[in-house]
């Protein structure tokens, strides 16, 4: 990929998926985010790196509306979504995963994914049991297949292993017709094999689906992203291609502690 990935993507699609205009978030006196300006083209795949407490998850929460930004505006495919409740943002094609799995422990794996498909579809209040031929049910089955969870299809989620729960966490973001996904440390706590599977799943996503991925594991982050944003103390301080970021002396100083290969 060339250095100007965002620009070339923009020419392809003609739209920004996400535009953040001086977004800030304060928790009392604590400034978790400040002056974030970000433009991400439709279909672009971006990694956000930074040490613990840099504001990465807060950034996600501001975008999805889990809590609202103190200042600034957020646009999603040209529409101002700053004041929309979370579920309305999701219905416009935004999705997210969580750093700590947020699943429905009492329901089966298939029902978890089914709800993720149904949430952006009609008949959410239906008192009829979904038939196997139901469109959302069928999409849930195919997502189940894509994330390799067929063997635990009817198992209650609280009985899954950590790796399987992380896998399901990703599946939950694929329901409906996502246009842009926020992945919050999807590889946390995964075994090397599971990491390989994860990279495979991310790279197999349809080209029109863009995402931001927060990832501590540089190997994963750099293999699934075209462009990297570095965060430190609630600010964006550097953007570039994976190669530029990896070789940047300032980045190595702050994030990698200077000693990284």
């Amino acid at each position: 990929m060339t250095a100007n990935v965002a620009a070339s993507r923009l020419q392809d699609s003609g739209a920004y998926a996400l535009e953040l205009d001086s977004v800030a978030r304060h928790f009392g006196a604590l400034v978790a985010l400040t002056g974030i300006n970000m433009r991400i083209a439709a279909g672009e795949r971006r990694a956000v790196l930074g040490s613990n407490g840099a504001g990465k998850t807060t950034l996600f929460n501001a975008i999805t509306g889990d809590f609202l930004p103190t200042e600034g505006r957020i646009k999603f495919f040209g529409e101002d979504i700053t004041d929309l409740p979370p579920h309305e943002r999701i219905r416009r094609g935004l999705r997210r995963t969580y750093q700590i799995s947020q699943l429905f422990g009492g329901l089966s794996v298939l029902d978890n994914i089914y709800l993720a498909c149904r949430g952006v579809s009609r008949k959410r209040y239906s008192l009829i049991r979904p038939k196997p031929s139901d469109a959302n049910r069928m999409q849930a089955e195919s997502i189940l297949h894509a994330v390799h969870l067929e063997s635990v299809r009817d198992t209650p989620v609280s009985n899954l292993s950590h790796g399987q729960q992380r896998q399901l966490e990703i599946a939950m973001a694929l329901g409906g017709a996502p246009r842009f996904i926020l992945f919050d440390e999807p590889a946390a706590g995964l075994s090397p094999t599971e990491r390989r599977d994860l990279i495979e799943i991310l790279n197999a996503l349809p080209a029109h689906i863009g995402y931001i991925i927060i990832e501590h594991d540089l190997d994963v982050a750099l293999r699934v992203s075209e462009y990297v944003s570095m965060m430190h103390n609630g600010k964006l301080f550097k953007e570039g291609t994976p190669e530029e970021i990896e070789n940047d002396p300032q980045v190595q100083e702050i994030y990698l502690g200077g000693g990284h290969g």
């Binding site: 029902d111 949430g119 409906g176």
Partner: peptide
């Protein structure tokens, strides 16, 4: 199912569009 899912995790329910 939506009701049980809300019992288990309301935050995720919002994050999938409910």
């Amino acid at each position: 199912l939506t009701l049980q899912a809300i019992r288990d995790n309301p935050r995720r329910m919002r994050a999938i569009g409910f």
